[in-house]
Amino acid sequence: MTPSNRARLAIFAALAVIGSLEAVDGQKPAPAQSAPATRFTRAAAIDAPIVRASAGLDKLLPRQAETIYQAVASRFRPARAMDTVTFMERFWRLPVNAGFSASLDHIKTGLVEAGFKEGALSGTLSPVLAVEEYPNGGNGWELVRAEMTIVQSAAGTAPERVFDPVTDYIALCMNSFSTPPGGVTAPLVYVGNGADAASYASVDVKGAVVMGDGRMGGLWREAVGLRGAIGVISSAPPPAYTRPDETPEVFQWGGVPYDEKLKAFGFKASRKVADRLKERLKAGPVTVKVDVETRFNPGPGKLLVAEIPGRVSPNEHIVMVAHIQEPGANDDASGCGTLLEMARALQAAIAAKAIPPPGRTLTFVWGDEMRASREWLQRDRGRQT
Rank of each mutant, 00 (worst) to 15 (best):
N315H: 14
G310T: 10
R276A: 14
R344Y: 07
S234V: 04
A264K: 12
H317N: 13
S334Y: 09
S334R: 13
P244V: 10
P327M: 14
V319R: 03
A306W: 04
P237G: 14
I233S: 05
K272H: 12
A283P: 01
M342G: 01
D259G: 12
V290T: 12
C336V: 12
G266A: 12
D368Y: 00
M320L: 15
R276N: 06
P239V: 03
G225L: 08
H323P: 07
P314I: 08
V286P: 02
V290H: 07
A345W: 03
L226P: 03
K272A: 15
V365Y: 00
V312C: 05
S373P: 01
A322S: 15
K289V: 00
I355H: 03
K289F: 02
Q325F: 05
R271V: 05
G301K: 05
G310S: 09
A329R: 14
P285Q: 14
I355L: 03
A348F: 02
V273F: 09
R360I: 01
R276C: 04
E293N: 04
A345I: 04
I324H: 08
D245N: 13
S313V: 12
E326M: 11
E307I: 15
A229I: 04
A229V: 05
K353D: 04
A283R: 14
R243T: 15
P358R: 00
V305Q: 02
T338F: 06
F251I: 07
R280T: 09
G310L: 06
A283E: 14
F267N: 02
S373E: 12
G299C: 06
I318Y: 06
A283N: 09
F267P: 02
M370W: 01
G301P: 05
A372N: 11
D368L: 00
L262C: 04
V232M: 00
R280K: 15
R243C: 10
P358Y: 00
F251P: 03
V312W: 08
G335E: 06
G328H: 13
Y241T: 07
A345D: 03
P239Y: 12
Y241F: 15
R311A: 15
Q325D: 15
W253C: 12
F267R: 01
L281G: 07
